[in-house]
Simulated assay, not measured.
Amino acid sequence: MRASLAVLAAATLTATALGAKASDLPAPAENEGETERPWVLQITPYVWGTGLSGDVSPFRRGPTIGIKKSFSDVIEDLDFAGFVNVWGRYERFVFSADMLYVSTTDSKVVHGTIPRPPLSVRLDASIDTRQFTSTLQAGYRVIETPDFTFDVLGGVRFWHISNDVDLDVEVAGQKRRISYGEDFGWVDPVIGARAFLRMTEKLSLQAQADVGGFGGGSNSTWSVLATANYTMTDHLSVSAGYKYLDINYKDDGHVFDTTMSGPVIGLTYRF
């Protein structure tokens, strides 16, 4: 039972931690002079090196498990991960789209013996987890100066998580495979703000925060992200910072009540 719970916890962790909400990664701020342009569009592939702590239950009839994992623990089970943020502005109207897809596999092999009658037992468990999360927000730039901007935002965040379990059981040389799959998802309304401060011609600071859920999807969720941004060319910038995300989702036997935090690194191309 202990090994089975470990498999369940590791798979759920890896799926959700690498992104699990994943609120927007703010892209580096617009170059000096671009505030005078009627429109700006920029795309930012990014990485979030997050750990995870909290309580999870990815299966409706499964146990709720307390977990605490570092980013290095999570990355061991990763098959594929993709993260991208799109940020746009037309005059004072702003738009943000953040998308992530994560696929993980966690496998464990357990050997044992049943004492009465004495039988050898082998359990090979594998859990494949896939997660898609998309955050769409729109808003308005309420403050705009050459060195400081402030935007207010509102929108929705979509979640979809699927889990497939394969158990290969061998007892006294007799083999049997058991498979089970389950998926769930929800939508959270979110409201937030984004601020930018220019320090020098090439260096800037940026912060974004949001709060949501309100019982419409999750019970509650909030996040804060701060980055330092460096402009390398007119079209290319890099960002580095830290992100903190808290979410409390409990519905129909599924539980995801966790805190995620870790460094972020992004590379922005500006059109």
Rank of each mutant, 00 (worst) to 15 (best):
L8W: 09
L225N: 13
G154S: 05
T16E: 07
D124E: 15
G139L: 00
H235Y: 14
R198K: 12
K108H: 05
R198S: 04
S261Q: 09
V165P: 00
F184D: 03
E170C: 03
E182I: 02
G82D: 01
E201Q: 15
V187F: 01
K250C: 05
D234S: 11
S239N: 08
F184E: 00
T14M: 03
S204M: 12
T233Q: 09
N229G: 04
S237G: 15
S96E: 05
L41R: 01
K108G: 09
D183T: 10
L119R: 04
D147M: 08
N85R: 12
G215L: 05
G181R: 01
Q131T: 10
P45Y: 11
P118A: 06
Y180H: 08
S220L: 13
T227N: 15
M1A: 15
V102M: 04
V40C: 11
Y249M: 08
N219I: 09
A6Y: 10
S220C: 04
P38K: 09
A29C: 06
Y249W: 10
T259G: 13
A9M: 00
D124I: 01
D210R: 02
T104P: 00
T113G: 03
S23D: 08
A29L: 12
T16V: 02
S120R: 01
L205I: 13
V142D: 12
R92Q: 06
G49T: 05
L8M: 06
V84F: 07
W222F: 14
F80E: 03
Y244H: 15
V47R: 06
N248Q: 07
H235D: 14
G213M: 02
G62Q: 01
F59M: 10
E201V: 10
D246Y: 12
L13N: 09
S179A: 13
A15H: 04
N85V: 07
D24P: 15
Y249P: 03
G253R: 03
K243N: 11
N163T: 04
A207Q: 07
T113N: 12
S126E: 13
G216P: 00
D73C: 03
T258I: 09
V7D: 08
G54S: 01
V187P: 03
S70M: 06
D24Q: 13
S72T: 05
D166W: 02
S70A: 10
S162N: 04
L203Y: 08
S134E: 13
V152G: 10
S57L: 07
F184Y: 06
S126W: 04
R89H: 04
T233A: 08
L123V: 13
T129S: 09
S57C: 10
W222E: 06
G253C: 06
A17C: 07
R130A: 03
P115S: 02
S237Y: 12
I127C: 01
V187W: 02
